[in-house]
Nucleic acid binder design. Sequence first.
DNA 1: GTGAAAGCGCTAACAA
DNA 2: TTGTTAGCGCTTTCAC
Lengths: 325, 325
Amino acid sequence: MSEVAQLADVSPSTVSLYLRRPDEVSSRRAERIQTAIDRLGYLPNTMAGGLASSRSNIIGVIVPTITFSFFAETLETLERNLRAAGYQLLIGNTEFDPSREEELIRSILSWNPSGLVLTGFSHSRKSVSLLAKSDIPIVEMWDYGQEGLDMVVGFSHHTCGRLVAEHLLRNGYRHMAFLSTNFQRDIRARERYHGFRDAIADSGGSVVVRELAGRSNTAEAGKLLCSLVDEHPETQAVFCSNDMVALGAMFECQRQGWSIPGRLAVVGFGNQDFTDSTVPPMTTVEPPRQEIGDHIARLLIDRLKGDDTATRIDLGVRLIVRESG
Amino acid sequence: MSEVAQLADVSPSTVSLYLRRPDEVSSRRAERIQTAIDRLGYLPNTMAGGLASSRSNIIGVIVPTITFSFFAETLETLERNLRAAGYQLLIGNTEFDPSREEELIRSILSWNPSGLVLTGFSHSRKSVSLLAKSDIPIVEMWDYGQEGLDMVVGFSHHTCGRLVAEHLLRNGYRHMAFLSTNFQRDIRARERYHGFRDAIADSGGSVVVRELAGRSNTAEAGKLLCSLVDEHPETQAVFCSNDMVALGAMFECQRQGWSIPGRLAVVGFGNQDFTDSTVPPMTTVEPPRQEIGDHIARLLIDRLKGDDTATRIDLGVRLIVRESG
DNA sequence: GTGAAAGCGCTAACAA
DNA sequence: TTGTTAGCGCTTTCAC
């Protein structure tokens, strides 16, 4: 920067001012400075700036995984909105490991971020105290229904499970199953199951639950479905923890010659792109993937401007009724 | 840090040394320092450290999109490996917009990163000169066959296209189609098409190409396939730019009652999880999604340790022959 | 093995 | 509007 200043024959602080608030510099010098910047190919040093101002344009985001298209879409939307306001995303993924979250929080906090976005409400005690003393805006996303540390943007997975159950019950199904990937570690999949189970219990139906060993492995979903139907031939409908699992279930039905939804109704979660072209089209639940990103960006930007905005937003889900269930 | 020093009754520089090379501090003081750190809940300030040492533990990565599971998997693998070596990923996505890449390079470079990973070989002139003068290790990934700025880890998309064509030709198919999402903007999809087309031309077959308007929209792939077969009823095989498009094509065949591969062979790209359970199982190409991440991490770590390592790695692809083509 | 001192490249008062 | 000055919180010599 001092080189730029020298070449433009102004002081370094004028250059700094020009970079941050160009209209407060006289147009004559502004022009000279810009020329010098171009000539030297000057790139500002963000760390020096951040240190001096003890602020950074970083927003940390912690998600379980970026390979689930849900989260990837939220991240892309969030990034697009936040970038427009001059912020950078620092993304961490826990791979569903709670101890990783603490480590990530620590590492992100050491960057002096302007804000932090977490997935869900479940954090270690240490994480919470770390966050408490940092006093930056925190958003917990992709869930709703608990108190929250600061702001919350998401939806109730319990309600989502109930919604699906009620839909199936209304259509006369009584014996159901929940087919899940990551059931032990994914607290939100478990919540959906709980809502599903509770609604079914209320009306005297039955539910069994099965967990896939790996990630959302479509082939394994098929095998699991087979053994499930073998043990519980009364099963009439399956609610899957995501659309990929549901796709695996549908393919298995096709291979077994089980009609959908005649022999077995299949419901997914995610409303991924492909769900409208399966045969038959898949009934699924649409979570507000992008809306979550949009709302978080808005909340964060407002808060960082000083506004004290609403802190809890329930975006709900939409049940997309097609033909599979 | 000075607070920690005071509480531990040592100098700040000893604390700094302890944090960076703990074994060079006497165990008595080390213990006192650690106690003080815990008591105060001290978190180092990464920006101050980075400024003082004029290094950072950041590795920038620029991908077209993180919502394609290919790239997401490479990112996760890369992150896992690099984290173990003490590096942080700063991820940017261009959304296939070349001008965004330049902007991202600028913004990442201003963080003084230790290295930078780009997708493909196509960069603006400005980007190249920006990178040239930064003298950090650069990796271009997910492609192979051109000179490259520094290191290259990927595979040849042209060869990939040839591979699929040769497989289909060997099985007696003559009239083919290429069904692509993002054909205009995704230079690598286009390269696969070129390889495909060249091999077919060599043996006197025919190819038509069709582009989906949106992202990899499965439903649209179905419609496009229909109009394609309508215009070119001689078409016997379709190579799709990714597995999702291929899935859409397969569903459309099912709806139309076209047998796969009898009436139409379908080949995907990606070997995504679901491809082994489609009906019939999908023939596809497996790109080295995770291997790319592994190799880049190793190259980068070696280079940053001072080793001057091999600079171009062709990981190739595997043709996964199943029943759809 | 430890500490004092200098400075990384900026920003933010403040004075001019 | 512009320049001067004093740090931001660390790391890195270099003496001790």
